[in-house]
């Protein structure tokens, strides 16, 4: 099953005369992982924005899970993202006014499509959130405020939340760039395990060549 297809994908920011992404083509099977790298300003984050459906792609250039994102309305793309995609940022992934556990539960609580994957019950949501946290060795932190976590812990909580409700595709934008080696490895290990477990594809943006080994495909962007 095909997870992601780019066919001559281009993107130009409004108001700019030069496209930031130009003629990208690629096909990724479900469960395969993609490593995206390139210098700063080369458009890595912009690419993830397109994949997530935040930025509008042109028709027939980008297909995710069988859906041509270029032909969808913004609302449809939001719904699609809500149902099928998990997103991890470089930093500050968590809502400061919720506990660790609540942050992990958030997608399933907010998004009906995610909730439905967990048979909808509140107890099921909680169980799944706890399971994800324990898979990342964070079970003791479940009831803490996110402000009491280290950056590494925060990123792993973000990974757990992204996996809530088993999204088919995980988009991660330099999730380990703020971490030391040990924390980076912990995070990558957890992410890869969870992806394997849920048969999710991981699209990861990073400057760190050491991570490339875990990925079936690589995409290098040039400015």
């Amino acid at each position: 099953m095909i997870c992601l297809t780019m066919k001559d994908l281009s993107y130009t920011w409004p108001g700019q005369d030069r496209p930031i992404l130009d003629g990208l083509s690629l096909q990724l099977s479900q469960g395969e992982h993609l490593y995206v790298h390139g210098p700063s300003g080369s458009g890595k984050s912009s690419l993830l924005g397109l994949l997530a459906g935040i930025l509008p792609a042109a028709p027939d250039q980008l297909n995710v899970l069988g859906l041509d994102l270029g032909k969808q309305s913004p609302l449809k793309r939001d719904r699609f993202r809500a149902a099928h995609l998990g997103v991890i940022f470089q930093q500050f992934n968590l809502l400061s006014y919720l506990s660790v556990l609540e942050n992990v539960e958030l997608p399933a609580r907010m998004i009906p499509e995610r909730r439905n994957k967990l048979d909808g019950k509140a107890s099921a949501i909680r169980d799944e959130a706890k399971r994800l946290l324990s898979r990342l060795n964070l079970e003791e932190l479940a009831d803490r405020s996110v402000q009491q976590l280290s950056v590494g812990q925060q990123q792993r909580v973000a990974a757990a939340r992204a996996m809530m409700g088993s999204p088919e595709v995980l988009l991660a934008d330099e999730p380990s760039s703020a971490l030391d080696e040990k924390n980076r490895d912990l995070l990558m290990q957890g992410l890869l395990e969870l992806c394997k477990e849920h048969e999710s594809s991981l699209v990861l943006v990073s400057h760190d060549p050491a991570l490339a080994q875990h990925f079936e495909q690589q995409l290098e962007l040039r400015p």
Partner: peptide
């Protein structure tokens, strides 16, 4: 942004 990433609509 976090909420948007989760799938919360505008």
């Amino acid at each position: 942004a976090i909420l948007r990433a989760i799938g919360v609509t505008p």
